[in-house]
């Protein structure tokens, strides 16, 4: 896989994760104005992720591109550890290693 393709895969998942987070903050927002703004931004992020995925699918198999979605779980866990200081249990560290191994096997296929 080329570095550009890898970058596009990461961008696809980053926009998807950003959309999910914005959707959650929109639901929890107290002011109607900020709620509508965050909701619109969430939809924009999810739409970007949707079409970026199609751009990837024009070049790769679906069974190759889709499993990379699981790497978003690892990105989220690392982000919460770095930015929020949340600790991860040994069981979750093991699970992340299994997921990473799975993604590595798919990328090597």
């Amino acid at each position: 896989m080329s570095p550009v393709a890898l970058l596009l895969i990461l961008l696809t998942h980053a926009t998807n994760v950003a959309g999910q987070i914005l959707m959650k903050t929109a639901v929890m927002a107290e002011r109607t104005g900020s709620r509508i703004g965050q909701f619109a931004l969430a939809i924009a992020c999810m739409t970007a992720s949707f079409f970026l995925t199609i751009g990837l699918l024009q070049r790769f198999d679906l069974s190759y591109v889709y499993p990379f979605q699981a790497s978003a779980v690892i990105m989220m866990a690392l982000a919460t550890r770095v930015f929020l200081g949340e600790k991860m249990s040994r069981r979750n560290v093991f699970a992340m290693a299994v997921i990473a191994a799975g993604v590595a096997l798919v990328s090597a296929s």
Binding site: P67, V73, A95, A97, I99, A101, G102, V106, S109
Partner: peptide
């Protein structure tokens, strides 16, 4: 290899979700 990779991913996600 791809099939085993997908099964690894599902197994890892199930462990995360159970926790």
């Amino acid at each position: 290899i791809r099939a085993v990779g997908i099964l690894f991913i599902v197994a890892g996600l199930v462990v995360v979700a159970r926790s």
